[in-house]
Design a protein around this nucleic acid. Structure first.
Lengths: 231, 231
DNA sequence: TGTACATCAGTGAACGCGCGTTCACTGATGTAC
DNA sequence: TGTACATCAGTGAACGCGCGTTCACTGATGTAC
């Protein structure tokens, strides 16, 4: 019966989730390379070979964790953008939400934005979840641009012709219609945002800019100004 | 005799270098967690226990690699700064040298700026080598400031009082005498520089800003402008 | 210069551990008629 | 509703592998007199 299939499916979905939860817990102590099928199984009270009914290999489990993490981060950023005309407040809120999520899930953040795991190649399934945060940022800018509140992005230095072309291609491939200087500045702000968060989480700021709270807030204001949001 | 001691010391120094060279080679294929005493020894044609005459543990070998890498990167940045009154050219050259070194030594770069190795805690020996690149950047800004060519860094938004205090403390602890707004902007440019390089090397730009050449060049110009260097 | 001694480099075996993945299997759960 | 069959989840043993570190040892290199 369909209802019984549904029961089995539900149990399966639950255990799949349990496996991923336990794997996430292990990321925290051992890092991505330390993630072990056997240890996950052990902790769940099952035999290691049983995991292979759920994930055909360790790499598949890793991929699932990566996709989940991109989606969780993306969802956090989307939720933080409440919409409305106050684009500066939205910009701030989105940036903060990214940092908050990263600080709350440092090992998953490291999985996404840290050193690539040697021998692991991310499949294309990760591309669109990875795009969610940049799309939220670009959404805010796009609305500001459409509303005519985006200022002072046409100051020199201008992107070189090849860079402008690259930006134009990217803009249309994302289904947006932003001029190259806007998109270029957005890209710079994007790398700045994650650069700061990575420095904070990976320990580069310890002893110099520590705590990083005030620094982050200030940089977010500066970047908002830089991308052309109203002062 | 002293000369004979010198021979033994020289041999010892050579083998120490060989061990580190081989370890660096292994970083490339296996990453930091994959670095193995046994594999290094095997490749060098010696028995694994012999390595312990040179490095008391795997962590000590890792530390040596980290210190060496910070120093190599720092030396590259220092060499790129030719001095002289053209601060914009110097800024550009230093930024480019950092990116070049990173692209030439991606695995060592990842060791320094990627996810922290789980279970490994960097000893304090790494602090001063790690400071070399930021000090070069600050040196350029400092000379520009002293020469009175540093412009437009006193525009809003200003650092908040606590951030300004943090910046002031950092400035004096580095033996510099830069006003807080200058130092704050320099810190932002610093995180921006490494944020871009990490994104490029860790694959975040693949398919969107790829190749990253033009983007990097443009961002360096923008950042130079941002920190107040003359247009 | 020659000899007795101390230092050091490298050996090889061992301890105790963990890993990913495969495979033939038992039982339970679901399906078709 | 009942029975024969197919699907699936989980078991336990095994394959073949690699790891960091310790330790008693041999032999060569350096030192002091």
């Amino acid at each position: 019966m369909a209802s019984m299939t549904a029961t089995r499916d539900r149990v399966r979905a639950e255990l799949t989730r349990d496996i991923k939860d336990e794997a996430r817990r292990q990321l925290a102590t051992a890092g991505a390379d330390g993630l072990s099928m056997r240890a996950v199984a052990r902790q769940l009270g099952m035999v290691s070979s049983a995991l292979y009914r759920y994930f055909p290999s360790r790499d598949d489990l890793l991929t699932a964790l990566i996709v989940d993490a991109y989606n969780a981060l993306g969802a956090a950023a989307e939720a933080a953008d409440t919409g409305g005309p106050d684009v500066v407040a939205r910009w701030r809120a989105v940036c903060r939400s990214v940092r908050s999520w990263a600080r709350a899930h440092p090992h998953e953040y490291a999985l996404l934005y840290g050193s690539p795991v040697p021998g692991y190649h991310a499949p294309s399934d990760t591309i669109s979840p990875a795009a969610r945060v940049p799309l939220v940022l670009l959404g805010v800018l796009g609305e500001s641009w459409a509303a005519g509140t985006l200022t002072s992005v046409f100051e020199a230095p201008y992107p070189s012709p090849p860079l402008a072309a690259q930006a134009q291609r990217l803009s249309t491939s994302l289904g947006l219609d932003l001029p190259a200087p806007v998109l270029t500045r957005a890209l710079i702000a994007w790398t700045q945002l994650f650069g700061m968060i990575s420095f904070e989480l990976f320990g580069q700021l310890v002893g110099s800019v520590d705590p990083a709270e005030e620094f982050f807030e200030h940089a977010v204001e500066q970047m908002g100004r830089y991308v052309g949001l109203p002062a």
